[in-house]
């Protein structure tokens, strides 16, 4: 016998109120990351010993810049979800858990925005 109200059953969001959203975003970004990581490896291999001029020329190509934007967004979103699970699994003190979850979001946000800023600056502002 279920103790849940018919409304909460229909919504299917569970006690965390977000349903399967975390799982779904994890898989969504995982699938997106497959081609994006292949691109990332090619980009890195092509620029391992580049000078700044060569690197900005490569990253300034509109198609490459666009792929970098996709890659940075998908990977940092995936990173945040993954680290959230690790924190929730191992950190049991409420205060420390909250602090680390906040730090996780800030870190991933900073990595994402720094990367996006760099790509946009290379693309638009010499």
């Amino acid at each position: 016998m279920s103790m849940r109200t018919p409304l909460s059953k229909v919504r299917g969001l569970g006690s965390a109120k977000s349903g399967t959203e975390h799982f779904w975003h994890q898989r969504l970004t995982a699938i997106a990351n497959v081609p994006l990581v292949i691109f990332l490896v090619f980009f890195c291999v092509a620029n391992v010993g580049s000078s700044q001029a060569e690197m900005t020329a490569a990253a300034g190509n509109p198609l490459v810049a666009l792929m970098l934007v996709f890659t940075i967004i998908s990977i940092t979103w995936h990173m945040r979800l993954g680290m959230q699970v690790i924190i929730e699994d191992y950190v049991h003190g409420e205060g420390m858990k909250l602090a680390l979850l906040l730090a996780n979001t800030f870190f991933c946000g900073m990595v994402a925005l720094t990367g996006l800023f760099a790509v946009l600056k290379i693309s638009f502002g010499g």
Partner: peptide, 15 residues
């Protein structure tokens, strides 16, 4: 997770 920070540092340096 931390490796991506390194990658972004590299991109930022180029910018």
């Amino acid at each position: 997770y931390f490796g991506m920070a390194l990658f972004v540092w590299w991109l930022f340096a180029a910018a």
